[in-house]
């Protein structure tokens, strides 16, 4: 990892410094956590201070915030949403359910670990995390971008076979998405 960081050019460093100040967030709230987001956005905790704004479409968003558990059906929508986002894109897993299944460990219909299906940049532990924790994790993400370490989105292009295999295993069949990930990686020269 260290070699990669030292290899960054001056332009990439400046670029990271500037673009970490503007992160637009798409929140996918089918779990329990949506109730913690309004205080994070409004007067009490005001995440717009850090340039983090809620956005409404995946095309414009940089952060995909997944609050809580995903069932097989919602996971498919998350994968579709994630593939529509423009790189660099960062997934933040919110709550224990995205980390290891949480209290839905024994459930027959929920996913246990989010990072087997899409690459996750940071996790927020807790059931459910408070707005302070959300702000703290966004700050951690900002610092990671500044250090040039927030590169997990490249995994999806480089290790696409791994993710696709896990997805298809869960969906018990091929998944039809609208993006050709490998062609995109070649077209935009992502390594």
């Amino acid at each position: 990892m260290d070699e990669k960081i030292t290899q960054r050019s001056v332009w990439e460093k400046i670029s990271a410094k500037l673009s970490k100040r503007s992160l637009w967030m798409l929140h996918y709230c089918t779990g329990c956590g949506a109730i913690e987001l309004p205080p994070t956005m409004t007067a009490r905790f005001d995440m717009e201070r850090f340039g983090i704004n809620p956005m409404v479409t995946p095309r414009q968003a940089d952060i995909l915030l997944i609050t809580g558990y995903l069932s097989v059906k919602t996971l498919k929508r998350v994968v579709l949403t994630y593939e529509q986002m423009q790189a660099p894109k960062y997934v933040v897993g919110f709550g224990s359910c995205t980390i290891n299944g949480g209290m839905y460990w024994n459930s027959y219909s929920t996913m246990k670990s989010l990072d087997r299906y899409i690459p996750v940049e940071t996790y927020i532990a807790g059931c459910m995390p408070r707005p302070e924790a959300i702000i703290a994790s966004f700050n951690e993400l900002i610092n990671k971008i500044d250090r040039g370490e927030a590169n997990s989105w490249k995994d999806y292009y480089n290790n696409y076979n791994f993710y696709k295999e896990n997805q298809e295993h869960t969906f018990e069949g091929p998944i039809e998405t609208y993006n050709d990930i490998k062609a995109d990686a070649a077209l935009f020269n992502i390594k």
Binding site: S19, S22, L23, G51, N179, F188
Partner: peptide
């Protein structure tokens, strides 16, 4: 300015 810079430095533009 930050927003515009970020958008212009996106790696993929579908």
């Amino acid at each position: 300015f930050y927003d515009i810079f970020k958008l212009m430095s996106k790696k993929t533009n579908i």
